[in-house]
Design a protein around this nucleic acid. Structure first.
Lengths: 360, 360
DNA sequence: CTGTTAGCGCATTCAA
DNA sequence: TTGAATGCGCTAACAG
């Protein structure tokens, strides 16, 4: 394969000139430019991005970390980011940390550092090392900061705080590199529960994805739990921790949780779920056990994945503007990567409780 | 950030020695090794993969091309590939060519070439340039072949043939670089239709994802169509092209197709769909219009995505061993990338017609 | 077993 | 506006 040098030779110019043409600096005369372009076409020259990256320290690559790509909310997010990124010449490295059998997130960060990604988007929870066990994290995050690599989190401000703190990074100086996009999970959860309470429900379950990691790893879940508790308190319904349950973040997990809860002496009549797949699993299991939705059982999900409105019955859920968030995530990363001015480093998006057929 | 040179200095050895240690050649004496390791740890040295790739021409990166990441079958595929790949130190670049507004596949191939990916997995259809319009494709594919980059297609042998032919590559020499994993779509489709015919259906629709691109772009679809036609012929049911219809490859598309077909004078009683999301969309629309499934309407999908068995009613479908295929896809790519012996370059997997509640 | 050296392809000085 | 020269960090001969 021809290199830039070959092009220079063919066009009878220096490599510097070819480079200038390639990078669109218009300091090259029209006819020289034309000669170079002709040579490029003639030889079928393709620039070697690895060499370029090696030189410039920019890979035009960003990484997306997601918990489980099999939860439909993440493909929706990824898809938007990919479209936006590609438009600007960036390519996506996908990291899903999924079932726990793979590497932990710190390992991802190390690998991505070695690969010189230009920016990182982190979705959802982040497994933050324990106090006193942060050496690896500290090192890698300081290296990132040193390199001015920007991060955008779709998570919770508070979680980012812990992350930064454990990384022992000086936020006074580096705050601008870390953006958080979030939604008011506490309020969203509160509203869902309140809606159920208003309809007369007293036994309301909270079904969530695995809670193996909690504080400070899973602040998004903690927020939802708080909203749930707040609504109960307000309605003078005593908190019953038997009604707070977790399963794998998929249909099966939801179904299992339902079965388990139905075995209680005084089973719940309403289910608030931290994700739509869980909620749909609950609906499935409810139907299996002969329960009528919403007459006997009410279910509310979270996220509003596409399938929610196609289900039978249509799922009531909390709609999250995931595409808008995804677009904003890349936009901010882009501004940061190119050292343009960027807005304040936190932004909260509105959610909306959408009542359809699965709840009364 | 410290470089290999810094490590060499600190350990009082040459850069070559550090490199040897780093790459696990055990030609270095234990105590030297230890000194080097100590220096690495001391300095917090991290290898620069870009520099390494620049030198070795290996990026430890593979690309996955999928049509629409929002169709749940692809996340399932991607997830398995990612797990397998990461275990071997490879990272995934995701390319979804989705809604047509983005780049065409040839452009992806160019970008990936420039980025020096070590191997490529292509799922589904491939938009092959017209005869006489293949210059770009030829060039890029010849460059890939020249570099010995392996490809694994989850598609149809025939489609690969066209692709190779248009690329003007000498298959006599390079066949081993191109593997095809496939399923017998013709037969699967045939069996689905036959099952419906046996149950007494005479008006059977074929609902597919957009057929904007057909031969030779969408051989997978062509195969399904052939199986459909074969089963009809065998049952002496005349082919009616009003019953062959396409929509966007999602729930909405399926729902729209159903509505359209119901407006026919003599609407179908059974729906064979080329994907589960389409089938679920059909079920949704059927319910909306008051049709009873499976008493009045039968529906069969394709792929057996996770949600299929959780639907109400549970979807009858053709089960595809997508995880096995994904595992095999990476395995072959891996063997090829590392120039190990690999099996014959085509393999067909079995599918299974799973009758659940949506069909009689 | 270890050190010396060359060079991968490119962008970017600095001169001319 | 263009050319010559330098070096990014690493691996792989080759020599010792």
């Amino acid at each position: 394969m021809p290199t830039l040098k070959d092009v220079a030779l063919a066009a009878k110019v220096s490599t510097a000139t070819v480079s200038l043409v390639l990078n669109g600096k218009n300091s090259v005369s029209p006819k020289t430019t034309e000669r170079v372009l002709a040579a490029i076409d003639e030889l079928g020259y393709r620039p070697n991005m690895v060499a370029r990256s090696f030189k410039t320290k920019q890979t035009k690559t960003i990484a997306i970390l997601v918990p489980t790509i099999t939860n439909p909310i993440y493909p929706a997010f990824i898809h938007v980011v990919e479209m936006e990124a590609r438009r600007e010449g960036y390519t996506i490295i996908l990291c899903s940390y999924d079932d726990g059998s793979g590497p932990v997130q710190t390992d991802f960060l190390e690998d991505l550092y070695d690969r010189n990604v230009d920016g990182i988007i982190v979705c959802g929870i982040f497994n933050i090392p324990k106090e006193g066990n942060t050496r690896k994290l500290e090192r890698i995050m300081k290296a990132y900061v040193n390199r001015k690599t920007p991060f955008v989190f779709y998570s919770e401000e508070e979680q980012l705080q812990y992350f930064i703190q454990r990384s022992n990074i000086d936020m006074g100086v580096h705050a601008a590199l870390f953006h958080t996009l979030s939604i008011d999970r506490n309020q969203a959860s509160y509203e869902a529960v309140k809606h159920l309470v208003t309809s007369g429900h007293r036994r309301i379950a909270l079904v969530s994805e695995s809670t193996r990691f909690l504080f400070p790893h899973n602040i998004p879940y903690m927020k939802k739990l708080e909203g749930y508790q707040r609504a109960l308190e307000e309605a003078n319904i005593p908190f019953d921790d038997a009604l707070v349950i977790a399963g794998s973040d998929d249909y099966r997990g939801g179904a299992q949780c339902f079965v388990e809860l139905q075995n209680l002496e005084n089973p719940p009549t309403a289910y608030v779920c931290t994700g739509d797949t869980l909620a749909l699993g609950v609906l499935h299991a409810a139907k299996n056990s002969g329960k009528i939705v919403p007459d006997e059982i009410s279910v509310i999900g979270f996220d509003n994945i596409p399938v929610a409105s196609y289900w039978n019955p249509k799922l009531s859920t909390i709609a999250v503007p995931i595409e808008t968030i995804a677009r904003e995530a890349f936009k901010r990363l882009y501004l940061l990567m190119n050292e343009f001015e960027s807005p304040p480093n936190r932004l909260m998006f509105d959610t909306e409780l959408v009542i359809r057929e699965s709840s009364v």
